[in-house]
């Protein structure tokens, strides 16, 4: 039961970046298209789950004075693994996401979950927490990407959905479009949450 709760909270109650307003750098930078957001989310989820599990396993061994250094070592290693895997097997997406893959190391969602959750809870719950938050992040990025791609290019996931007469609203796939989209979603979500 608790396993389920730890998992499900990442999908709405604490969904990053909408509820926990963390990890905004990749959120704003890579969501020009749905597929980009999805792959960024998947890469982050992998790192988050692995680092949560490992840090939870090591939580009694790591001295608290050097815990951040230890967490960063663990996180950075998983990020490099993801980077090498993406380079080897999905190179086109590596080209698109480029610098944002190594930057997952400093994504505060991951260090945040390590410090706030994995360091205090068991392996199983940390796994659920990482998976939930990671999938929440993936959904959020994919949704934001889909929205921006729909209005900015007229397609979703590369497939044209708008009629051919639709004039692409190019503002949406530029950086300011990301801010506006994110702001509107944040506003709508707190409106829904108030009821």
């Amino acid at each position: 039961m608790r396993f389920y709760q730890e998992f499900i909270k990442g999908l709405w109650k604490e969904i990053p970046p909408f509820k926990l307003v963390l990890g905004l750098c990749p959120t704003l930078a890579v969501t020009a298209a749905a597929a980009n957001g999805f792959f960024m989310g998947m890469a982050t989820t992998f790192v988050l789950v692995c680092s949560n599990v490992l840090i939870s396993m090591l939580r009694k061994v790591i001295p608290s004075k050097v815990r951040i250094a230890a967490y960063i070592l663990v996180i950075a290693s998983f990020v490099v693994i993801v980077e090498m895997m993406m380079k080897a097997y999905v190179f086109p997406f590596y080209q698109i996401l480029g610098i944002f893959i190594p930057l997952i190391v400093v994504n505060c969602i991951i260090l945040g979950r390590a410090e706030a959750f994995a360091a205090k809870n068991g392996v199983l719950y940390s796994f659920a927490d990482g998976l939930g938050i990671g999938i929440g992040f993936t959904i959020a990025l994919t949704f934001l990407g889909a929205l921006r791609e729909l209005f900015g290019v007229g397609s979703i996931w590369g497939f044209a959905v708008m009629p051919a007469s639709y004039m692409p609203f190019e503002f949406m796939i530029k950086a300011p479009g990301a801010f506006v989209c994110l702001g509107v979603i944040l506003g709508l979500m707190s409106l829904v949450g108030k009821k």
């Binding site: 090591l58 061994v61 790591i62 001295p63 050097v66 250094a69 230890a70 070592l73 663990v74 950075a76 290693s77 490099v80 693994i81």
Partner: peptide, 13 residues
């Protein structure tokens, strides 16, 4: 502890 973690992650990488 830090040395063991560094060595292990280094080897894995």
């Amino acid at each position: 502890v830090l040395s063991i973690i560094s060595a292990t992650t280094g080897a894995a990488l």
